[in-house]
Design a protein around this nucleic acid. Sequence first.
DNA 1: AGCGGGACCTGTGGGC
DNA 2: TGCCCACAGGTCCCGC
Length: 273
Amino acid sequence: MPELPEVETVVRTLLPHIKDNFVTGVHLLRLRSLNPASLPPEALIGCRIAQARRRGKLLILETDKSAMLVAHLRMTGRMLVKPENSEPGKHTRCFFDLLGPDKSQSRLFFDDVRAFGQLFICTAPMLEAWPFWRDLGPEPLEMTAGELAQRLTGTRPLKQALLDQKVIAGIGNIYADESLFGARLSPEREAGSLAAEETEALLRSIQAVLRLSISQCGSSIRDYRDADGNAGAFQNSFQVYGQGGRPCPQCGQELRKIRLGGRATVFCPHCQK
DNA sequence: AGCGGGACCTGTGGGC
DNA sequence: TGCCCACAGGTCCCGC
């Protein structure tokens, strides 16, 4: 599910519900949904949630103490705030009891159908030591074309490089296909073969697609919901993702669906070179 | 080095 | 209607 725009939307919708709430209880229902390097979830008890932010596809809840909660939602993870008496659902992997500054109570649920997602309760040094974090590439909305050019190297397909979180953080299958279409670049191009103006067009396209999706609260194909349980709308703006066999919105020729690095990939062979 | 395939999981949708 | 297979937003690991 959640790529950068979806995680950004979760962060934005989550924060108003949980800011300055104290964690008063934790209920871990599936041990494997916790990163093996994590502190015990009880480390969050007594902490006041101070900030919510995003890095790549990671959701980070910072507290007034040294412990923080880092979540990777992977394919089907959700973070949802519900009333205090809400019971865990079939796919709830962990939930937290919260006490607000006005003494109101609520619960923060981490639900995840496919159970690929993970929570990592950690300190800042533990986060820095986590290889996935340490190796994470730049934020696409903050990087320059020069930085992107430096990182797009080698002979692997361009799309595969975009999906590599070490190259650029936060892009997944949807936004890779959509960005490549916007830049009129073939997903099969060698990553290191782009001319300077092509790299610039690619970065502009990535940023435009991500910004537009964030403005529409992300894409909901089936599972994704924000912290209020609402779906996004960007799926209605897909140009190529999931559109294999349909006409290209640009030229009308048939969009081609292939497998690239094990991932479904849709593009227009006529428009994307 | 790089690639493909499998593993991790559950649910859904299409074809027969 | 029901069964079976393919496939799904991500990442890691293994063997070739």
